[in-house]
Design a protein around this nucleic acid. Structure first.
Lengths: 198, 198
DNA sequence: CCTCAACTTGAGACAGGCCTCAAGTTAGCT
DNA sequence: AGCTAACTTGAGGCCTGTCTCAAGTTGAGG
């Protein structure tokens, strides 16, 4: 790849990172090109689809989440690990509207060491007796989707409100006050399909 | 209003009701007109803005929610009333994707006897000691927003999944296992502003 | 039956965003 | 310096959806 092409690629990534963070994943591509100081054609040369650009911008997040997961498993207290993991992911969402959008459409940590780590986080806390036994990995999607919605709604007007939302969900996830959950949990397939269509 | 105009108005409402329910609030207006068997111009004659049409289609819901609220207050058990109210609202959302969209952008019951009834539902359950004391009316928005997101995501693939989401939130709202909530609750103004911008 | 205000119509102007491609420019090798 | 493949450019075609308005149609009162 030629030197100027590399430079343009980086400019585009910088601009996209900023605009996605501020305005979400649906920012017009023209605008990203403009902010990058590059023509729309060049944007398409470097990133043939919007997804390719999104992927490149948020590639680092995968590793960050994997780190969070490993730290969760390293925590002394299983519940603290579990709660800390969810809090960490939600903090990433709150810090970046683009990632917030993405999290709502993508299972966090799905490549790599993937869901395996997350399953272990859940099961460890369940073995410790602090996470209710009737929840499944797929139920965590409710936390992500829900908090994502709250972040999107309150970001301008009441940043930090999402922490109350999360706190309520965490209290609901604790073994203590658990009433049996209705219906079967979503299968992995159902959760995946749900992510696919919105 | 002329007879044919009335008839067209009703056709439009019927078509809009159906399309909103199936596909959400963002259905193209052209399509509504087409399904109604009427030209786009007529649609604009009857409903000058999309909001006017939405308002007319979902006018009945306001009354339905007010009914739910009154039934909640009439319940023997304050918690059952509270939980039943939220469940009722979420059922309305699950039954109609358009109303689901609307609920995420509008405080349920805001005209009329408005939030007064809802405040009473909350405070009654708190006096009974079953609803945690540190939640506010504005915190219920998290339930609506969150469940709305889950409904939108799972509607095709796992209908009913939202009931698990709601159950988790209700368990989090119970006094039993409550850990203190972080930060101050949203003010009514903040919640209103949040609804306004998304 | 006549009349006219009320109503309907749909082509088309407009806006926003996506994506392409022929023409022009440039990095970097020889 | 000359050459070529790599790269950039942006006008313009496309699409989808909103909204308007001049022309035509029709209900209903006289």
């Amino acid at each position: 790849m030629r030197k100027d092409a590399v430079q343009n690629r980086e400019r585009l990534l910088r601009a996209a990172r900023q605009l996605f963070a501020d305005r979400g994943l649906d920012v017009p591509l023209d605008e990203i090109a403009r902010v990058a100081g590059v023509s729309i054609g060049t944007l398409y040369n470097r990133f043939p689809t919007r997804d390719a650009l999104v992927e490149a911008v948020f590639a680092d997040r995968r590793a960050t989440v994997a780190d969070l997961a490993e730290r969760a498993l390293a925590a002394d207290d299983a519940w603290d690990g579990f709660a800390g993991f969810l809090t960490g992911v939600c903090e990433l969402q709150a810090a970046d509207l683009g990632y917030n959008d993405l999290a709502a459409r993508t299972a966090p940590v799905d490549g790599d060491r993937g869901p395996a780590l997350m399953i272990e986080i859940v099961e460890r806390a369940q073995r410790a007796g602090t996470l209710r036994g009737d929840v499944t990995l797929t139920d965590l999607a409710f936390v992500i989707w829900g908090v994502a919605a709250t972040i999107a709604a309150t970001r301008q007007t009441a940043p930090g409100a999402w922490r109350r939302h999360l706190a309520l969900m965490l209290d609901g996830l604790r073994a203590g006050a658990a009433r049996p959950l209705p219906g079967p949990p979503m299968s992995a397939g159902q959760a995946g399909a749900a992510l696919r269509d919105c």
